[in-house]
Amino acid sequence: MPKPKVIIAKLGLDGHDRGAKVIARALAEAGFEVVYTGIRQTPSQVIETAIQEDAKLIGISILSGSHMELIGELMRIMRERGVSIPVLVGGIIPPEDRDALLKMGVAGVYGPGTPLREIIDIVKKLTGVS
């Protein structure tokens, strides 16, 4: 049985997709079914995708500095629609924003230099894979 389905998405207008693609591929090689949405996603598109795919986790990559606005919106729509799926955020995130994102209900924030192993482990933990 393959491991659960996860979504990797680029939120906002930012086109830096190197990290998102590397993470998506690493998770696929770790046995997950990974749906990669590509760039320029809106918060509601990401949630709609997670619903239609019945995903167990959402991974978001943002390097444009607009994470506070966009993740805030994402979490708001999730609450509104009664969807509760763990959200991980990666990208260029200044340390003080990190705590604010965690307060919004994000399950984890990962910056440049995070080993892939660490990301695979947290995804396994959050999706209940032993």
């Binding site: 906002g12 207008l13 809106t42 444009s64 607009s66």
Partner: peptide, 22 residues
């Protein structure tokens, strides 16, 4: 910024979070 590069005015819905960021 990204809106200028993608042809969106700053008051466009998609542009708003990104105005003046990068």
């Amino acid at each position: 910024d990204l809106p200028t590069q993608l042809g969106l005015d700053p008051d466009h819905e998609l542009a708003y979070p990104e105005v003046g960021k990068v």
